[in-house]
Design a protein around this nucleic acid. Structure first.
Lengths: 200, 200
DNA sequence: CGGATCTGCTACATTGGTGTCACAGTTACT
DNA sequence: AGTAACTGTGACACCAATGTAGCAGATCCG
C-alpha cells in the first residue's frame, strides 16, 4: 500500500497481522494490547502502523482474502477437468483457511477492498461449479447458488472437525478435500442405489 | 428460575430477552442500552433483572436452546420412520432457529445450563441419525459425527439463503426442510447413476 | 383499598479500551 | 559514518459501557 516502508517496519506489520489472527481467533474483540503483546511489540507501535482498530481488521481481511485468492490461482482450476480442479482447489483452500481461521471465518462487514476480492473469489467459484455442471459432475438441475453455499459451509466444517489424536493442529488437507468433495457430490445417503431402500 | 416474580417483571424479562436477540443478531457486542431501548425499557431495569451482561447472554442461550429442544420434542422423532422423523424435526428446528438466529448461531462459550441442554440435543440428533443409518436412509459406512456436523451446517445455511422476492423474512420451513434433507442425503452430484458420467 | 413490588429517572463512580504525544535509544539504509 | 526511520517507555486525555444508588410514581396482587 504505502511506499517506502523500512524493512523492520514491514516486519512489524506482518507480525501484527499474524498476531491479530492468532489472538482474535479465540477471542474476537480482544484488545489491541493483547495483540501487541502476542506480536512482541508495544501497543503504541500497533497504533503507528494502523490508525484504527478497524483499519487493522480491514488489513487483516484483505491480507487473508488475497492469500485465499492466490491459493486458488496456484491450483490452476482451468487447467484440468472440473472434478480434478475441484479437488485441487479444495485442498489449497483448506490449507489457507486453516491458517486464517478467524478472518476467513467471520464475514463481518468487510470494507471496500476486501469485499472486492471476495466477490472475485465467489465469481470464480461459481464459474468452476458451472463448468462442473456442464461436465456432468454436478446434477443439471442443481441450484448453483445453493451448491456454492453448501460447498463453503463444508469447507468450514471440515476445519472445525475434532482433531484426531494428538498430532498437529490440522488434518491432512488432501484427505479433508476428499471428504468435502465426496460429501458435496453424494451426501450421506446410501451409495448402492439412487432411491431409498426400505419405505415400508 | 427464581420463584415469585411479579407479572409485569416477568413480562420485562421476556421483553429483554427478545430484544436482546433482535439487537445482538446484527450487532454482537451491542450495548445494554441499545437492548434496553429495543425492549422499551431502561438500562437500569435491565440491570435489575440481569446482574451481568454475561448473565443476560447466558439466559438468552438457555432460553433459545430450551425452545429448540421443545421444537424437537414436538416433532415426535420416535413416532415415525427415520426419514419422516428427519423431515419433521428439520422443519421444526428451522422454524425455531429463524427466530433465534443470534443465540443459536454463535456457540460462544456457553456456561453450565446451556451446554447441558445442547449436549442433550446433540445426543438426540445423533440417535436419530443412527436410527436412520440402521433403516438404510444413511449409508452404512457414513461417519455419523461428520454427518451431524454437515446436517447442522446445512440448517444454518438454509436460513442464510438470500430471501426470495419481497415476501416475509423467512422462507417456507417445509420447503427448506426438503432442501436440507435432500442435500444431506444426495449432495449435488448427478442423480441418475452412482458414478460420474464422463471421465475422458 | 393498601402494602409490596416494579419501573423510570437522575446522578455518580469505575473501569477498560482507544488514541496521542514527546523523548530517548535502537535499527536500517546509503 | 551519518542521517532518517523506527521502536519502547511513560504519561495523558477521552470516551463508552458498566454497575450502583436513591427516590418518586406506577403497577400488581391479595
Amino acid at each position: 500500500m504505502s511506499r517506502g516502508l523500512r524493512a523492520d517496519a514491514e516486519r512489524s506489520v506482518r507480525a501484527i497481522l499474524e498476531a491479530a489472527e492468532r489472538v482474535l481467533a479465540d477471542e474476537p474483540g480482544a484488545s489491541l494490547e493483547q495483540i501487541a503483546e502476542e506480536a512482541g511489540l508495544t501497543r503504541t507501535t500497533v497504533h503507528r502502523r494502523f490508525a484504527n482498530r478497524q483499519a487493522l481488521v480491514d488489513a487483516l481481511a484483505v491480507s487473508a482474502k488475497q492469500q485465499l485468492a492466490e491459493a486458488i490461482d496456484e491450483a490452476r482450476p482451468d487447467a484440468a477437468p472440473a472434478l480434478v480442479a475441484m479437488y485441487r482447489v479444495t485442498a489449497n483452500v483448506l490449507r489457507t483457511k486453516s491458517a486464517w481461521r478467524f478472518t476467513l471465518g467471520n464475514p463481518l462487514a468487510d470494507t471496500s477492498a476486501a469485499t472486492a476480492i471476495w466477490a472475485d473469489i465467489t465469481a470464480r467459484t461459481h464459474e468452476l461449479l458451472a463448468r462442473a455442471q456442464r461436465e456432468g459432475v454436478l446434477d443439471p438441475a442443481a441450484d448453483l447458488e445453493w451448491t456454492r453455499q453448501v460447498y463453503y459451509a463444508l469447507l468450514s466444517e471440515a476445519l472445525h472437525r475434532p482433531g484426531r489424536d494428538q498430532g498437529a493442529d490440522a488434518q491432512d488437507p488432501d484427505a479433508l478435500a476428499t471428504l468435502v468433495i465426496d460429501t458435496l457430490l453424494h451426501g450421506a445417503g446410501p451409495r448402492g442405489s439412487a432411491r431409498a431402500p426400505d419405505e415400508a
